[in-house]
Design a protein around this nucleic acid. Structure first.
Lengths: 337, 337
DNA sequence: CAGCTTTTCGAAAACGTTTTCGATCAACGG
DNA sequence: CCGTTGATCGAAAACGTTTTCGAAAAGCTG
């Protein structure tokens, strides 16, 4: 039995409408009554019911985050959440988490049709095909949304994503500068879009350096625990093994390192290792991992900004790519101070 | 302009009330009309407005998660979020994230009075005193809530927490069995409740083994980056340095290890290190960290269960403590297979 | 067929707001 | 003193549901 606007109006002998107008800054209310209303509000501890207000205004001032269940298993995704939380805090919004069911999209449909949120942010692109179905659904229901990360295919949606190609290019140039000629790549087939872009950077660096592409140096690590170890084993057993490897992300790179160390090889002396994402573990890994940092906080903020614009009525799709930063650590160079 | 219940009623020539009753399983509606309503619902793609329904029912079927901004910086907290996300998915609930402002609680008050959620889960106890103010507020506003983790002081609230003392005891017994007699403890003053309980386990183990307590072996690492390194330095410069240390949590332990390795000491030969929480980094740290695992998924689920009971009308406080599990890795024993 | 029960439905109130529109009243210009 | 204007307020509709209650229709009993 919380205090409602009716309580305030009774308490002051005013009508409900005047109280509402006083609180919402309408001009047709006397200064004296407005201050009286404000005082009573404070005194009785009144706060408008969000539900009632939402119903009347036909909007909820809430934004939803759609993500696969496994998001929180991955330090990469957690990084994006971190960015979103900071962004939401800055914008005075609260986040509603909607865990996208792997199989059917009935739940998401319920959210949309139930008009629980004004807009949505999609995160965890590509994993398990969840995003693809969700995007189609949101499009159909006319809910504004932006993808945090790379959307599948060349769908015509707004997104905020890292410069995968540029980041991969930087890592590769770093390795090539160190003198490496045979550089392996461990791919992530489950995340086709990100993988394709990083692989593109890999190939571009080779081409620019005049190094022939050798497809025996490409191997795959699917989205399962420790898959990077198996991939690394394949590379090490090659007739002419690589002297360095660039892994799709830090998780894979750390797994790969494990295999390397198990064989009593030295990193980076016998084999240099580099990853992508700059997850917390990459710093404590042994040796500390050379990787690519993406500005997840800024990206989260930007994604929210774009979404708010979309909700506000803008209808042009925005495709924003964020610069990444190479972080050199002990897994590629020995002398590091 | 989404399709409302009125559209359905018009389309079928029925009244709004019968449609609603058909959908909500009321008995006083003919089987034939019910199936007609269901069919029309499916055909027109109708989904009740969550807002309108909430207003009428006076509940939102949503639960909020109050957490400090920094939660997502800490792998420990992320673990709890992980548990909550799984639990929410299991119970068919969605989580609303409410980032508790560090200083004032106006925002939280707005949530409560606005009746946006049916209940709340508080996470990140003790950090920066946020939880204390929040708990008082929620209590005052009459919103059901449960604390995930240890609540401050001996407040009379429901919580689901790990067995800190038992976990610490197990780590210490492990170290003592290995022959260590001088064991340091790095405390976390910012998290008084958890710290006190783990410290209690530390002292109990010493007492049971008949080892005298030496307070020069106790040092502190506040909640700032790399604070563990400084704490470890203090311990190493002692006239009689410890042969093993037990750190408040894995973050601190990993920091401490860094200092140890910088001084060209071997872990665990020269100094054994153990932590608490079993964060992802503890596995990739070098050497892999001996630590205490808490069943965060189960705990998250349990917290939600308790909260749902509270919302359902139960009013007895529940204080649940979860068993932890010692995880032995290379930072305490050399031969590990 | 009269009277009763059971089945099936619809009218209307209610949830707590916001917002439009008209009403009242004082002030003001002429 | 009258018509106009501006300031201030309240009545009422609306947002989209759920739920209570009474009414109508149908079925049943004797």
């Amino acid at each position: 039995m919380p205090v409602t606007i009716k309580d305030i109006s009774k308490h002051l002998g005013l009508s409900v409408s005047t109280v509402s107008k006083a609180l919402n800054g309408y001009p047709d209310v006397a200064a004296k009554t407005r201050s009286a209303v404000l005082a009573a509000t404070e005194q009785l501890g009144y706060q408008p019911s969000a539900t009632a207000r939402n119903l009347r205004r036909q909007r909820t001032d809430k934004i939803g985050v759609v993500h696969p269940v496994k998001s929180f298993e991955s330090e990469t995704f957690v990084g994006f959440f971190r960015g979103l939380v900071y962004a939401a805090q800055d914008f005075g919004y609260n986040l509603n988490l909607y865990t996208a069911p792997e199989s059917d999209s009935a739940a998401l449909q319920r959210i949309c049709r139930g008009r629980e949120v004004d807009g949505m942010i999609l995160i965890g692109t590509g994993i398990a095909g969840v995003q693809e179905a969700s995007m189609a659904l949101l499009e159909r229901e006319g809910i504004p949304f932006v993808v945090l990360g790379n959307p599948v295919e060349d769908s015509n949606v707004s997104f905020v994503a890292p410069d995968n190609r540029g980041g991969a290019l930087a890592v590769m140039q770093h390795l090539i500068e160190l003198g490496h000629q045979r550089i392996g790549y461990i791919a992530r087939p489950d995340d086709p879009e990100n993988n394709a872009q990083r692989f593109e950077g890999y190939r571009q660096a080779l081409a620019e350096a005049g190094i022939d592409f050798d497809d025996t140096l490409i191997t795959e690590a699917p989205y399962t625990p420790y898959s990077g170890m198996g991939a690394m084993r394949v590379l090490l057993e090659l007739p002419k093994p690589p002297s360095a490897i660039f892994a799709f992300n830090d998780h894979v790179a750390i797994d790969a390192s494990r295999t390397v160390l198990q064989r009593d090889l030295q990193i980076p002396e016998d084999l240099a290792v580099a990853g992508f994402d700059n997850i917390p573990s990459s710093l404590v890994a042994s040796p500390a991992l050379t990787t690519v940092h993406q500005p997840q906080i800024e990206m989260g903020k930007q994604a929210l900004e774009v979404l708010l614009a979309l909700i506000g009525g803008r209808d042009d799709v925005q495709r924003l790519t964020y610069q990444t930063e190479l972080i050199v650590r002990a897994s590629t160079v020995t002398k590091i101070l």
